[in-house]
């Protein structure tokens, strides 16, 4: 069974459309990343999947059920973000006890061990926690719930580097022991890319890409060298980004469909080819730069008003 299935899911807030007919499906028991620039529609999508919002059009299904107003989905999924509200009268320990009452797969030993490891005080209160501590506490709830569909929306907000590392490690270890469907949205793609099996990229409310992490890592290639050593055929390639390095040299990021012969020719011309990491590829494919030139152009005062997603001029 598919863990998640979305058919043409659209969400409108008044006149603004946050999601434009997004369709995809997710196999169960995978860790999947959700990436997108600010305002791409990530949170809206995740909230629809956990039944916190209702889609305006189309259909979202979680384990075959429509999530909105559905107790079965509520009991088997959890949505963790940095704006979780808990009753202020409860202590942190009491909140965990409530989690145990609600989530049937809840692992209280794990919850308490993590609680101690991260140095929480049992009598502390959620609204007194610092930003990073709050995220850490929410993460503990997300992991301990062992929900069939576990969703983390920007879970590492405010966490320091060491805690983020611990969190990723805890997430992987617990997933290995208890496989489940985990959907993780993050702005730190470079930190989680090895944990993910697949990635979904949203751009301006549209699904831009849903692929394996392996493919994402070889999606783009960086080509750099002198202007005159770029062969004629380069202009037929799909450019994701182009940057001048001084008057005579430039780096071009393009979709990685170079043939061996083409690579040989570039190399013969003294042009350097290098790998583009998954997180860099993500930045290039979703960049505001697409079709407009980079930030530098904003400052130099000439922005081409092209609206295409990809440029292909040399």
């Amino acid at each position: 069974m598919k863990a998640v299935q979305c058919k043409e899911v659209t969400k409108k807030y008044g006149r603004r459309t946050a999601l434009h007919g997004v369709s995809f499906s997710m196999e169960e028991n995978k860790i999947i990343g959700l990436a997108g620039r600010n305002g791409a529609g990530k949170t809206t999508l995740l909230k629809i999947l956990t039944g916190l919002l209702k889609e305006s059009d189309g259909e979202a299904e979680v384990y075959g059920n429509r999530p909105f107003n559905n107790l079965l989905v509520s009991a088997n999924s959890i949505y963790i973000d940095d704006q979780m509200n808990f009753p202020t009268s409860l202590t942190l320990k009491e909140i965990l006890e409530e989690g145990r009452r609600f989530y049937h797969n809840w692992d209280h030993t794990l919850a308490m061990n993590l609680f101690d490891y991260f140095g929480f005080h049992p009598k502390g209160h959620h609204n007194e926690l610092s930003k990073g501590k709050e995220s850490t506490f929410n993460m503990i709830i997300g992991l301990a719930s062992r929900s069939a569909l576990t969703i983390f929306d920007e879970p590492t907000t405010g966490m320091d580097a060491a805690v983020r590392k611990d969190f990723y490690r805890a997430l992987l270890k617990d997933y290995l022991a208890y496989p489940r469907t985990i959907l993780l949205s993050t702005h730190h793609l470079e930190e989680v890319e090895d944990l993910l099996e697949e990635i979904i990229v949203l751009q301006k409310g549209n699904l831009l890409l849903h692929t394996s992490m392996e493919d994402m890592k070889s999606y783009a290639v960086a080509v750099s060298g002198r202007n005159e050593s770029m062969p004629e055929w380069m202009k037929h390639k799909v450019f994701l980004y182009e940057e001048k390095q001084g008057p005579y040299e430039k780096t071009i990021i393009l979709e990685n469909d170079l043939t061996t012969v083409e690579k040989e020719e570039l190399k013969r011309n003294g042009v350097q080819l290098s790998a583009v990491s998954a997180s860099d590829a993500f930045v290039y494919m979703t960049g505001e730069a697409n079709g407009k030139g980079g930030l530098d152009d904003v400052f130099s005062g000439h922005i081409n008003s092209g609206s295409g997603q990809k440029t292909s001029q040399l």
Partner: peptide, 16 residues
């Protein structure tokens, strides 16, 4: 799973 744990990677990658 063991390889995923050792190298801190997704088990599907290790399986591959």
């Amino acid at each position: 799973y063991k390889l995923a744990d050792i190298y801190n990677i997704n088990p599907a990658t290790a399986a591959k």
